[in-house]
């Protein structure tokens, strides 16, 4: 059965109507999931939808049940997130686990902070983007019922993350990686205690957001055409935070380390205008919590260990003919990691 036929049957069962699928296409976005965009029509109405299906091979293996529970919970919060229509966590409908969501308005612009908008507009946008990260950390996950689905690692969040990623390394590595063994030993001996459990997105970045369109075309979206982005009218904003597949409970410093990772500066920083210190100040102002810079650094190191293991996972999947992209050895990440731990 083709994916179009599978979608039509699935939606017909869900809606109780005959369903037409049109314009089905796989987008190039995303290395960890297949994204299929399409229009579905039933009962005289058109619905732009996106199906996200687990691929045969991926750089990340995650649990759709957790993602589904979190998306359902987020629907009751002010954090903009995709509207989940249907979930097939067992992979009965399309051969592999899949979620169907409304196609949210807005566009994905991974390098938007260093794009061609005026600097004031980009800084204003950065404040909105990372304000959303603080909003995620401020969610009351117990009130949202997420304690039933997610494990609270308590003060051992760093150790739990290390255990998880060491397990992933053992699962995916094809060759010995003594560089990672060395860095993991450093991380283990310097693991910080966690003082506050929050929801952690796990892969927060502009490329995992949808942004609304500017209304006046000057890039800041404030409607006055001067490009200063300072307005009261809202402006370009985050219409959806995407890719919740790595969401978990843990230390909010984990997300802070991820978004201030020097390797990802091109995505998260605006040189001289939006530096990690600005981001952390905004986060503190929004949450009322003061980040520990040593702890942020520890999570920055783990961020690059994670990226290394994700690359190795891609290598494994490629060698098994389960992935259409070649992932080579992450040796360049190893050099960065050595610098980060002062070796």
């Amino acid at each position: 059965m083709s994916i179009a036929d599978g979608l039509a049957t699935w939606l017909a069962d869900e809606t109780g109507h005959h369903v037409e699928i049109q314009g089905l296409r796989r987008t190039s976005n995303g290395f960890s999931r297949e994204n299929w965009v399409f229009d579905a029509s039933w009962n005289g109405e058109h619905h732009p939808l996106i199906a996200r299906r687990d691929p045969v091979g991926s750089v990340l293996d995650t649990d759709r049940r957790i993602e589904t529970a979190v998306l359902c919970a987020l629907a009751h919060t002010e954090v903009p997130s995709p509207v989940l229509r249907w979930a097939d966590v067992d992979g009965i409908r399309l051969g592999r686990p899949a979620l169907i969501m409304d196609l949210a308005p807005g566009s994905c612009q991974p390098l938007v902070l260093n794009g061609d908008r005026p600097i004031e507009a980009r800084v204003a946008l950065a404040r909105r983007i990372y304000g959303r990260l603080a909003d995620i950390h401020l969610l009351d996950w117990t009130e949202l019922g997420l304690g039933e689905h997610l494990v609270d690692p308590g003060q051992h969040a760093a150790g739990a993350a290390l255990d998880h990623w060491q397990g992933e390394l053992r699962r995916v590595q094809l060759d010995p990686e003594p560089e990672l063994a060395f860095v993991l030993a450093w991380l283990r001996s310097n693991a910080p205690p966690n003082e506050r459990t929050t929801l952690v997105h796990g892969d927060f970045k502009p490329g995992n957001l949808l942004l609304g369109d500017d209304r006046d075309g000057d890039g800041d979206g404030d409607g006055d055409g001067d490009g200063d982005g300072d307005a009261d009218g809202g402006g370009t904003d985050v219409t959806a935070v995407l890719d919740w597949e790595t969401v978990h409970l843990g230390d909010p410093h984990e997300d802070l380390g991820w978004v201030t990772n020097p390797l990802r500066a091109g995505e998260h920083r605006i040189a001289g205008h939006w530096e990690p210190a600005d981001l952390l100040r905004l986060w503190t102002a929004r949450t009322g919590w003061t980040p520990d810079l040593d702890v942020v650094h520890w999570w920055q190191v783990l961020a690059n260990v994670k990226l290394s293991i994700i690359v190795l996972s891609g290598t494994h999947a490629f060698v098994d003919h389960r992935l259409d992209r070649v992932h080579q050895s992450p040796v360049m990440l190893y050099r960065i990691l050595l610098d980060q731990i002062g070796a």
């Binding site: 080579q328 040796v331 360049m332 990440l333 050099r335 960065i336």
Partner: peptide
């Protein structure tokens, strides 16, 4: 030294 000598990797991560 191995990072520089490794013959099968791109020169940048991103």
């Amino acid at each position: 030294e191995r990072c520089g000598r490794f013959p099968l990797a791109s020169t940048s991560v991103g």
